[in-house]
Structures are given as C-alpha cells and as structure tokens.
Design a protein around this nucleic acid. Sequence first.
DNA 1: AAGATTACCTGAAGGC
DNA 2: TGCCTTCAGGTAATCT
Length: 276
Amino acid sequence: MPELPEAETIARGLDHLARGRRLLKARVLTAGICERRVKFPVGARVRGASRRAKKVLLTFEGGATLLISLGMTGQVLRRDGNGLPAHTHLILTFDRGLELLYVDPRRLGRLEPARVATTMLAPAEEVAVWCDGRFGAEPLDTTWPEFKRLVGGRRKVFKQLFLDQRPIAGLGNIYADEVLFRAGVYPKARPADLNDEELKRVWREMRAVLRQAIRACGTTFRDYRTATGAAGGFVTRLYVYGREGDPCRRCGKPIVRLNWPTGRSTHYCPTCQPER
DNA sequence: AAGATTACCTGAAGGC
DNA sequence: TGCCTTCAGGTAATCT
C-alpha cells in the first residue's frame, strides 16, 4: 500500500529512469484512470520526478506536471518485453526505447494534471505551491516546534489525525501504527491529553520510521513494487502492522488488532501502548 | 463545521 | 470443487 516511503521510492526510480527523456506517445487503455483534463505533453522532455505526500509527480520541461495518485495498488513500472502486465491502464513511450506503464489492479489510483503554471518555479517550490491547501506538512521537513503547533492540543485521536492528510501528509495505516507503537502511544490517545515529552516521541519516531522505510525502499505486503519491479524490504522491520497475535518485539505479549476506525484496522501492543 | 461513514474498485482468502 | 462473503485502505464525497 503506497504511503510516503513507497511513493518516494517510486519517484526516485522514475527520476532515474525518465529524466531527460522525451515523451513520444501516451496511450490510455482505461479512460477512468485519467482525469478528463489530463493533457500529456507529447514532445516534451522529463525534467524530473518527485514526491509530495503520497503522490508521485512527473514534471516536464515547459511546465506540464503529471500527478500520479497510486491509490491502494498503483504501480509505475518499466516495460520489459512485448507483453503487458494485467491491469495496465497507461503506456508512456519515451525516446531511446523507454516505456513506462501504469498498472493498478483495483483502479483506485488516478492521474491528474498539475493545478498551477510551473514554468517559473524550481521543482521543490513548484511542488509546494501546487499542493498547498490540499495536503499538510511534509513529515520529514517538520521541525519539533512545527509539529507541536500542527498537532499539539488537538482533540482528534492520533491514529485518525495521521490518516487525515490535512495536518501532516504522507502516513497511512501501516506507518501510523508503526509510529505510535515506537513512540509508546495508544492509538486512540488524543494529542491534547499528551505531554510534551510524549508528543516529542511521536514526532521523532514519525521521522525515524519514514527515513528507515525509505532506506529499505518501502514496505511490500502484496502489490507494491519499485519502478524496477523490486519488492520493498521494510516488512521485516514492522513491529505491529500485520502481526496480530504475534509476540510483541519489545515485551513478548500478543499484538492486538482492532477493527477500527470503520472499514480499516489498527494494530498495537496493549502493554507498550497503555491507554494510561 | 468537524467528525464519521460510505463509495469506489478487484483479487485473495476463508467459510460452508 | 465452487460459490459466496469478507477484507484490504487511499481518497473524495456524503452524511450527521
């Protein structure tokens, strides 16, 4: 499930593969995967690939920027051989023989155009401007005072605060659970009820978990792959996600899984993350 | 108005 | 064996 580390890994792979390549052709196989307004900049060279929150951005010279929202099962893969993987929805053909595929079994992902003219902006600025109002702070760029300002005092429970992309953007179900375990914070704790020391642990672990997961090229449970088709290695480093009933790596007691919030799940250790 | 719930999607897995 | 139900969870829309 692509969250921030998976999107970052895909963006880095994409940047490596496609930077400087000229787009020759875009073939949409599944109309529903693209927003109507998407106009592929055929003829333009790729300036680079980057990431904001869980989104991958492919920026072209001339300012066109394609936003790739990966949903649950979206993959960006380099085509190898003549056949196409099942659920291929888009083929981007570049010069010098590169073809990139958007593959997404569940079709929850979307391709969108950028919202602002980007020609005059450097890539980092462009990404920040484009996304403002839609996504909150980048976790890895957030200092402790900023984190305290964004999160401290809020009444919304921590797990749901992390799933809401408006305050801080990039964590999903897996990393939210991992961060809260490593900080020793109960998932239903409210930031307003925590002291500075506890809040600071959440801030520190948020950044540590994401950095470590990026280093491991993300977490592959089933569908997620890097741009070169490799699986992410962080799954062996998870403390709680997907470990229901298994012994806690800190205290040995069984990891608990809640069917909460509605329609999803939360994993935690009742001993290491006491309700208080 | 914020918080909660549902729709979108398909493959895998489990129950009978 | 095979059919049916449930689950996975990112995001936006809808409801309360």
